[in-house]
Simulated scan of single mutants.
Amino acid sequence: MLGLVLYDLMEFELSLKFLREALSLTSKYYGAKSLKHAHSHHVLATVYESKGEFQLALQHEKEANLIHKKQVGENSDSTKKSSEYLTRLTEEAVILQKAISHITSGKPSARVSPPRFPIPSHHVILQQLNQTCGITFIPLR
């Protein structure tokens, strides 16, 4: 939880320290193939994405996606969301690589769009905190 709060405060390095420890603890207490472990991988992926470290973000989200597929199947909402996030991360990694290649080539050419480095939204952080703590909101109709 502290890693998520630090992420919300944009203290990425300190956040990563706590989140990597949380990943280790979820593996130890829940197992490396548990949905809690998948959630830890996903949170790490979002922090690495915010830092622009797309290779590490992709690595963690791929692991989360594999766990989701094995635990709840290809057609579950959580697996689909993870797959969509993987696709978006891959696209952003390609944009970043193109921008780096363009800058290092020194050739004048068409403008390359810069990659996006998302800043954490309070709403998303709150959702992740709720999921971490096991809090589920059921909408009343």
Rank of each mutant, 00 (worst) to 15 (best):
M1K: 06
L2E: 12
G3P: 05
V5N: 06
V5F: 06
D8T: 00
L9D: 08
M10S: 10
M10C: 10
F12M: 05
L14H: 09
L14V: 06
K17T: 13
K17S: 14
L19G: 03
T26N: 12
T26Q: 10
T26A: 04
K28A: 11
K28P: 01
Y30V: 04
G31A: 07
A32P: 12
A38S: 15
A38D: 03
S40E: 08
V43P: 01
L44I: 02
E49P: 00
Q55I: 11
L58Q: 14
L58K: 12
Q59H: 14
H60E: 15
K62I: 09
H68K: 12
K70E: 15
K70S: 15
Q71C: 12
G73I: 11
T79Y: 10
K80A: 08
K81E: 14
S82L: 07
S82P: 02
L89F: 00
E91G: 04
E91P: 00
E91A: 09
A93E: 11
K98V: 01
A99H: 11
I103R: 14
S109I: 00
A110F: 03
A110K: 14
P115W: 01
P118W: 09
S121L: 07
H123T: 10
L126C: 03
Q127N: 13
Q128T: 08
Q128E: 10
L129Y: 04
N130I: 00
Q131P: 00
T132A: 07
T132W: 13
F137Y: 10
F137D: 06
I138Q: 09
